[in-house]
Amino acid sequence: MKKLLLALIATIVLFSSCEENGEENPETFGTFQLEFDNVVGSQNMSLSDPGSGDYMYTTDSGEPFNLTLFGYYISKIKLEGPNGELYEDEVNVSANADEVKGYYHVLESNASSRFITLDDVPAGSYNKVTFTVGVEEDGVQEGAAGGVLDPAEGAWFWNWNAGYIGFAMEGGAQNSGQEEVVGDGWTIHEHSFSFHVGGWKDVEPAEGEDQKFVNNVKTVTLDFDSNVSVAENLSPNAHIIVDALKILDGVGVDFSTTYSVHAPKLGQPFAEFIPDTFILDHIHQ
């Protein structure tokens, strides 16, 4: 019986692959671009110098602040369409930087990093994009990696609790309780804040036990308001707004007590609002 079933499956697989190969029109491809536009509420984001006492933004609760660093990892991008169209960006971890695929480190300080261009997207209609903010277990557990995952070249990596920081913002706030700390070649400025959101371990708690570890890697799905077409001569662009205020107001951050977040559990309240932070503004067909 099992053998029969196997033979049947094999026939179906063979048959369907033959059919694809035999198609009259070979599959064509186009590109699709994601543009990440970082903002603070209704204002454009612009970064200040560390230590600056010039606070250009205000939280919902009236706390003045500025930003000196803002960014995140985007990975595992997927496009889906109304007729079952599916494109999954290739993901690969390697020591060889050229072979690292599908991980993007988007930094406000690096304009080109805000544009992710997906090549080889099969021609078709798409109405939804899904991506991961952060680096999941399978990205960490392959071991040392190059390119945007190389800690010696600016990758955001926690040594002590090995894994990547998925989302981070740093800046200054008038009410921040941070005191000045001067180390050997580094300074933590007075009134600064630093929110690093990391942690990828997904451990089911044993029965009767509290949750241990925190997985702060989040998946974001954005629906398009209409179908967009990808074709050889059609390269749509999704303009995605990333609003820092959604996190700060979502958490209801009080800088006087919350100014240093460097562990998964402390980052958890911030991570909860990551999906709300990414908003599809519009699509250019």
């Binding site: 960490v140 557990q141 392959e142 071991g143 040392a144 800690p151 010696a152 070249e153 990596f157 040594n159 002590w160 609790n161 090995a162 894994g163 371990k201």
Partner: peptide, 26 residues
């Protein structure tokens, strides 16, 4: 705290009371 052997030396290299160096500088 470290879940892959490759990442083990980073801790020793960058700990201020061990090698007190940065991976980038090595």
């Amino acid at each position: 705290g470290v879940t892959h052997l490759d990442f083990v030396p980073i801790n020793a290299i960058e700990s201020d009371f061990e090698m007190d160096e940065t991976l980038a500088n090595v």
